[in-house]
């Protein structure tokens, strides 16, 4: 049973978050270990397993990038591992530029404004790519899926940059 089936959802990329949360809560109410605090060891063991699986399923379906990766995997198109080199040179150049921008932030005259600007840049480039991914995923053929995997890999670069920006913000504004 895959995660979509487990949640009684059809295998579509766009899904209703409210509905997802509702099913998640209903499932956890049925299997959470708290329901078996008085049960046998076997019941407790299985409750932990099922509850952990439902948590993982929920996180996978809720997060759009995880959901995309999971759908592609179900369709038989696996993500190449992180070491596999990128062929898109323009993209790589852009990433290096963005990294430089990040490194420059702390020297900016107005740090607040610099952070705001890079945040906007990251967000707009992310949503462009994300829309492209969404369209490819609806095509449901292996050629489109292969291209979708490339988009997904690129989106993960942006996700990493975002994490680094967050960390930078913590450093700059906390002390």
């Amino acid at each position: 049973m895959n995660y979509f089936q487990l949640f009684g959802l059809s295998e579509k990329f766009t899904l209703d978050n409210t509905k997802l949360l509702e099913v998640y809560q209903t499932l956890q109410k049925a299997v959470h270990p708290d329901r078996f605090a008085n049960g046998t060891n076997q019941e407790k063991l299985i409750a932990v397993q099922k509850s952990a699986m439902i948590n993982d399923a929920y996180q996978t379906l809720k997060n759009p990038l995880k959901r995309a990766g999971y759908m592609l995997k179900l369709r038989g198109t696996e993500m190449p591992n992180e070491q596999t080199s990128f062929s898109d040179n323009a993209f790589l150049m852009r990433q290096m530029e963005l990294r430089e921008m990040l490194a420059e932030v702390k020297f900016a005259d107005d740090i607040d404004a610099a952070v705001f600007e890079i945040n906007q840049t990251l967000d707009s480039e992310f949503s462009l790519l994300f829309k492209a991914l969404q369209i490819k995923l609806t095509e449901c053929n292996s050629a489109a899926d292969k291209l979708a995997v490339e988009d997904l890999r690129k989106l993960k670069f942006y996700q990493k940059l975002h994490v680094e920006l967050d960390r930078l913000e913590d450093l700059l504004f906390d002390d």
């Binding site: 487990l6 959802l9 209703d16 209903t26 049925a30």
Partner: peptide
């Protein structure tokens, strides 16, 4: 456990 998952889901309107 599986049966309680099925019961829980059947209460939901499955799309």
């Amino acid at each position: 456990m599986d049966s309680s998952i099925r019961t829980a889901l059947s209460g939901q309107s499955v799309d």
